[in-house]
Design a protein around this nucleic acid. Sequence first.
RNA 1: GGCGCUAUCGUCUAGGGGUUAGGACGUGAGAUUCUCAAUCUUAAAACCCGGGUUCAAUUCCCGGUAGCGCUACCA
Length: 495
Amino acid sequence: MSDSAPSAANKPRVRFAPSPTGYLHVGGARTFIFNWLYARHTGGTLVLRLDDTDVERNTEASVQSIFEGLRWLGLGWDEEYKQSERLALHRQAAQDLFAKGLAYRDFTPAHAEADDTSSGQSSAQGAWLFNPGMRELSREESDRRAAAGEPFALRYRVPRGQSRTLRFTDSVYGEQSKQADEVEDFALLRSDGMPTYHLASCFDDADLRISHIIRGQDHLTNTFKHLLIFEGLGAPPPQFAHLPLLVAPDGAKLSKRKHGPVVSVTTYRDAGFLAGAFVNFLCLLGWSPKNDREFLTLDELTAAFTLEAVNRANAVINFTEDDPFDPKALWLNAEHLRALPVEQLSACIQPFFEQAGLDAPPEKLLAVTPLIRERIKLLRDAVSAADFFFVKELAPYDPKELVPQKGDAALARRVLEHAQQVLATIPFDTDSLDETLRAAAAQLGLKAGQAFQPIRVAVCGRKNAPPLFETMAVLGRDVCLARIRQALESLQSLA
RNA sequence: GGCGCUAUCGUCUAGGGGUUAGGACGUGAGAUUCUCAAUCUUAAAACCCGGGUUCAAUUCCCGGUAGCGCUACCA
């Protein structure tokens, strides 16, 4: 077997392992995307694993929300697992560690002395390392107390007093090391017998033959504990790659509680982000193709992505109370919107009209789409940009809008009356409208801009709208004339 | 407190011992235009501080500071 032959055995296996304690947020989404990109770039496998060992905080709603967010991204994954279904495996692993003497029972009651620094062994005067007496408990006494039904947590017996240094090379952060003496005796099993994240995660990573762990930098220092677990399990540790964190403008780590729905993936979806644009935006946070390109398709991202190009500093998502979306995300979305074929864009917009309660027939929406595609940043913007195409009655507007800057109501009236006349007979296509209305303006001795404003407002119900002739062509003669008639009526009130 | 990580325009970033420190978003100005957009041009805007190494440091090293993370029977 030559080593150039691609075999499944040496292809990377990566995993995304969210815990269902809340909705999928942007940080989690980026971790998922980077894992996906790495898997696709290398021809590897992406595992989705629900790390649901915290029974207290898990909710079914979170599970649904995570899948909802992931499905929207549209990237997919190759294998799927649930830690809660692997409980027996985790307990056995804990038992094995205990049997090997690598773990011990800690009978200290849970939450006993969280803030009492005088109890518990400390390094120098630093952090808590383990509860006194428990590490040294004899096997006999430990067994006796356990048999008597006394609750206990199972802790890893971190090697101490050996001046041992724990080391690993992170694909992003480089050489990492820490003294084993500084690592606390972390829990493997809770007193209710449930495995902790550390144990379940490491066991599953080993068992599922994960080759690369790509996750948030908040786990960087946990990795030393994980190294110990892999060692105890007799499994070679995978390659680690930690990602810089996504933070709020105030520098704080994004939190569902503090920042609310602005960090939820579904918020982006509901506002009308294209999944591809969202992915593109997230990739640019903490990673760069290093060639000044920012607009990238999924294929381009896949081709360009490497862990070496991930940077180390946290990235701020620039949202505010007024605007939940980073301006760059908005810009990128607008770019992706414009890159879409009209048919596709039109189809993407459709649901937003339905949601707004507007009847937008697909053929008509298809005709409208090119008129608004350069005027919207979010899909939902299409509704406010184009609603007047689909309403029967224009929303009431201030008749003063009909009057151009350098003009009066009389001028507006003249323009509209003249338009009414000429529009009655000409063919209603863009070119004819263009020709006719420009001629009309000239005839009235007006500049185009001056002459078109009353018509635009009459027809669209607002000053800012898509190009006039195209708009009128889509609306059709009857609607245009009816709206001009109404405008003339409302002009009365100004006299 | 202890341990760890990080530090380039407002934000995302490129770069790297000698550069006019580059790009993008956003912001200002102008052009174009039937309005608004889009587009084009253009302007303002950054190497955290202090030491060291060096002919030369924003870049390398050390220290400081700041921010973040971990320090749970959360993940």
